[in-house]
Design a protein around this nucleic acid. Sequence first.
DNA 1: ATGAAAGCGCTAACAC
DNA 2: GTGTTAGCGCTTTCAT
Lengths: 330, 330
Amino acid sequence: MASTLKDVARLAGVSIKTVSNVVNGYPHVSAEVRRRVEAAVVQLRYRPNASARTLRTGRTGVLALVLPATHLPYADDLATAVVHAAGQRGLRVVVAHDDQPTSSGLDDVRTMPVDGILVGASGTLDEPDGPLAATGPPVVLIGGASHDQRCDQVRIDAAQAAEDATNHLLGVGRRRVAAIGVRATAAPQPGSTGYHRALRRAGLVPGPVLSAQHHRRADGYRAARDLLSGPDRPDAILCSSDPLAIGAMRAAFDVGLRVPADVAVIGIGDIEEGRYSRPTLSTVAVDTGFVAREAVARLAIRINRPDAAVADIIAPHTVLPRESTDAGTR
Amino acid sequence: MASTLKDVARLAGVSIKTVSNVVNGYPHVSAEVRRRVEAAVVQLRYRPNASARTLRTGRTGVLALVLPATHLPYADDLATAVVHAAGQRGLRVVVAHDDQPTSSGLDDVRTMPVDGILVGASGTLDEPDGPLAATGPPVVLIGGASHDQRCDQVRIDAAQAAEDATNHLLGVGRRRVAAIGVRATAAPQPGSTGYHRALRRAGLVPGPVLSAQHHRRADGYRAARDLLSGPDRPDAILCSSDPLAIGAMRAAFDVGLRVPADVAVIGIGDIEEGRYSRPTLSTVAVDTGFVAREAVARLAIRINRPDAAVADIIAPHTVLPRESTDAGTR
DNA sequence: ATGAAAGCGCTAACAC
DNA sequence: GTGTTAGCGCTTTCAT
């Protein structure tokens, strides 16, 4: 059985209040008493009961990061960055991997004892009642393109990122640019907007835009195979995430095409895999550290002041040209 | 402010016990009362306080999965499988991403309110006092090759897996087989044992065995580059994980070699990336579902019976020949 | 500088 | 079938 404050107090011959003071680093404790208490803590292997503490104080010191089952492309990097950013503020992080494709995992985590929740949205998260409407710990959206203006969010400018990526493809001489995206809702995809904008400004007609179900390699594979085996084969494909792009490259090889010679491919996200793939994957890098820091900061603010104004923070992005769009080999 | 049982009871005109009964699905409640209570629950947006419940019952219904900062190769798959396996038993899972390379994250999670902890060990986890020595929720080790016999663990037979993989390389005609592993402790690596065994039985001399720091692509890259740019270049490399193998393949290309024609590469883990890489990566598949199910089952047993006998469960593995070891192209 | 006591929200025993 | 009460382990006034 785990020992409690009372056990420690009895062994040290003091009151539980004193033990609590020592454990919590309260300064006004005599050296002698502190020594006795610390010895008792070690001897009894005392560990504070987090539930009791939380029940009393209303604080857990823990944030939850909810990752969707649909595999957020840069989940790994994001998790690492969030853990780090939270650690800087003395907060721990638990990650809730959604089992279901639906966002029900959010409900699960809402009942867990955490101070706040970061929701990594792969697509759009448009629940009927929105994350804020329900009770529970405050929520900050990461990376999602939610139009829900009642919830803090940190994201890149998806339309601008798609436009920049498309312009990169045009810049290396491509003219028949197709796109593969993930449509999460009936709402227009911001990525698609940027893609069209870039082509229109260049005086080109948009190529086909295929919709993948999730941000997974297999989804990119299927979509690209369809794109590349039909007539009017594109000479470039813009993918709304790196896993899609990885799958697209594999599809190109499997139908006998070379990347980038026959078809250029670019993704979004800058996952590590793309730096080792063959060819290396051109992509749009998102500043994950920025995203994590801002999201945690935002959440910390909202935890302390629930009525703070809603923020919509845009993270910077950069096009990273690599082998998969190299014009030189063409 | 969040509403409590008392609030609901007052609104519904019943006692808190009755509300508790309804919330917990206790059958002996009259239909009329149940209806009133449920209405009040909805109206007040009541959510049970997990901390209070845990404090009272001593149960959280949550398992923690600790993933090391050193990037467990198949972490993603494992997390998904564990979440699923736990879900089957009505348990939720939180993932604790270790920030530090040390295993201190385990201490962190020990203070969190969970019923049990699954520790995904990338290498060996040989703490001075071992996971079991400390107090706190029970621990089950996953995938580690800990020699700590005081702790339940589920793992593959690493020596056998390495031997099988080496035999596969020999089977496709390779003779100068090198290896890249991750040495976590001073203890001999089981993988190395199997590698040597296979070569000895074939009457061959072992090639160089390089030690990578972590299971990361960059580590595999560095080690393979050293291996391939020196004299006595190997014609095959056994890597103790898929990320190492991915890095090794990239290194081979960068020094101007072809895979598998000039050098064959095989990994362990069967991560999805290896099915899309070029060439696709031969590997040893671990039955992640089995691992997850057994680990969760083991943990569930130990939660209920702390004195149960310690189990050491071996999960099945299978060699998956793919393009990176294809003998045909040689 | 230390102790006594109240109470956070909930469930388990026990009355009725 | 429903209500009353005690107490899980902790922090926090308020005394001393």
